[in-house]
């Protein structure tokens, strides 16, 4: 069982919390203008990072408040916990706003470098 440091209640067992998936996914600014592809991105496409991941949890049986966490999805080590509305600490994860940018399902633009290296 993981031990989480709730920003309001301090260290508590994982069983007191519920998971909320990727953090920092904003509701679309202009929902009426989204294409089907963009709705699909918002509803179904999330980062599935192997490594440091910014995610949300809610302390269901404690303060009942949501908060953010940076956790390594391989080692499960927790690197940081921060409140809703705050940005992740520098250097712990790629800017989530950039990660959430949509990529088309339709074929992408031609790749001028001719290769796509692994990351």
């Amino acid at each position: 069982m993981l031990l989480f440091s709730c920003p309001n209640c301090g260290p508590r067992n994982e069983t007191e919390f519920h998971y909320g998936g990727q953090a920092h996914v904003a509701y679309p600014d202009q929902p009426g203008e989204l294409s089907d592809r963009e709705w699909a991105e918002y509803l179904f496409y999330r980062q599935n990072t192997k490594g440091l991941f910014a995610e949300r949890w809610v302390h269901s049986t404690g303060c009942r408040k949501w908060f953010n966490m940076i956790r390594d999805t391989v080692s499960y080590d927790i690197q940081a916990v921060y409140r809703m509305g705050e940005q992740p600490p520098e250097g712990l994860t790629a800017p989530p706003a950039a990660q959430a940018k949509s990529q088309p399902l339709a074929p992408a633009e031609a790749n001028p470098t001719n290769t796509s290296e692994g990351v």
Binding site: A40, F44, R46, N48, K50, Q103, A108, S116, V119
Partner: peptide
């Protein structure tokens, strides 16, 4: 479970969570 990692190498995303 590693499909997203490979898709990212190829330059696209998948609607899955591991």
């Amino acid at each position: 479970g590693h499909s997203s990692v490979l898709a990212e190498m190829a330059g696209f995303r998948l609607p899955i969570q591991s």
